[in-house]
Design a protein around this nucleic acid. Sequence first.
DNA 1: GTGGTCTAGACCACG
DNA 2: GTGGTCTAGACCACG
Lengths: 136, 136, 136, 136
Amino acid sequence: MDFEPKITTGSTSPIFRQIVDQVRLAVAHGRLTEGNQLPSVRALAERLLINANTVAKAYAELNAAGVIDTQAGRGVFIAKPRQPYSAAERRRRLEPRLDALLTEALHLGFTLDQIAELLRERARRLADSNSSGKSS
Amino acid sequence: MDFEPKITTGSTSPIFRQIVDQVRLAVAHGRLTEGNQLPSVRALAERLLINANTVAKAYAELNAAGVIDTQAGRGVFIAKPRQPYSAAERRRRLEPRLDALLTEALHLGFTLDQIAELLRERARRLADSNSSGKSS
Amino acid sequence: MDFEPKITTGSTSPIFRQIVDQVRLAVAHGRLTEGNQLPSVRALAERLLINANTVAKAYAELNAAGVIDTQAGRGVFIAKPRQPYSAAERRRRLEPRLDALLTEALHLGFTLDQIAELLRERARRLADSNSSGKSS
Amino acid sequence: MDFEPKITTGSTSPIFRQIVDQVRLAVAHGRLTEGNQLPSVRALAERLLINANTVAKAYAELNAAGVIDTQAGRGVFIAKPRQPYSAAERRRRLEPRLDALLTEALHLGFTLDQIAELLRERARRLADSNSSGKSS
DNA sequence: GTGGTCTAGACCACG
DNA sequence: GTGGTCTAGACCACG
């Protein structure tokens, strides 16, 4: 319940998406695991100084994606990890994001090999922070 | 002037972004170099059967990014390449996007090796679709 | 575009769900097929005398489920049929609905065999209305 | 009085509905018959470790449906079975639910035979979980 | 014109 | 107290 997302109001990505991404990241890092309770819609809205509907929208998306279980009247909990999409759908969902990343990285002047190496480096960092609990 | 972007009206990404990305990719791949002329806003809009405002918006973004020079009354040209960012700055800009991609991909159930392989596959496809599409 | 859902404001199921179900049913019946355009968010909201956000919520769910493709600035279209969920996830999603139906039907006094027979009968009706275009 | 519903707090369906459904199923299956006594609101709430209001709400619905008789100061009993609906009325009530289930299932990619098979499987499971769960 | 995001606030269902 | 639905209305992105 001490989950504390940070949002940036003037950012490129919408507030509800920042919440979704941070919950996913926290799950990927192992900071949130099955059964952990998230703050209530209203509590998180107050803490972040945003509208409760915005939090509700983020939670609805996480719910649809099977990341959290929402229990009306009880609260919001991290769900048992599952893999809802078919192999084809998973590729379908990842490819546009890969294309966007590639376009951006190539234009920044990175070569494909550099991008792949950076990717592995970030993945290691992710794995480390996962096992050691927290690192910066 | 024979630059011929391909746009997909039924795509997820906005038309203006497809144009921006394809110009940037062509520059990154060396298919468009300093001084090359691009079609005028109106010419490109007519050829692609899209709204002239959409092309204008794409060109405006490319102008602001220093990728092209719009010379009133003369035409639109690829600008002198500039590398305004230091190596550290380039990494700083790319890393959050890499992290977001990794989180999403790992969440979808892909392994790091699968992600790297898909990345190379998409890079091949992006290069192919851009180089083979020069004539109309 | 002549898609005309009927909603009941005092009903048990929320308005946005009624819209979702009717689009799905129309697709199942073959009355809506790939590429067909749906009314815009605002147009449908005006026609049904409901708030645009309610229609937007229905469309967002259909979008997430891959039933429609939403193109900002262009409109809403029936997507190419696809099967986004894994086999396990499909069962996971169907079972609670089967349980609810069984409970209701058994309490109404139907036997399991009667339920199964009724199910086939409704499926035939669905198939018929699909091939003949429209029936009551 | 040895009626012992099983509730799952982490479930999708509300607790009060789980109680209602289990009483209805037990009646439909003949495991509870006219005159059988159910635990009092408080007793059941304590046994299930849930709020007494939740049990009260379930009993209220069962009362309204004529499934149970609450006799103030005496207890809660299974009512005389009544079959208030004509055959036509029963079908009229079930069909829209069958149609909704079919639409959803076909949309998920199940064939009619698969749906029928799953239906029987769930019916077996519902019967088992109810009959084998009589003692605490 | 199209859809997307967000706020403010009401009302309901569930516990 | 918990989350869910809906309205009314502002503002933004895209074409």
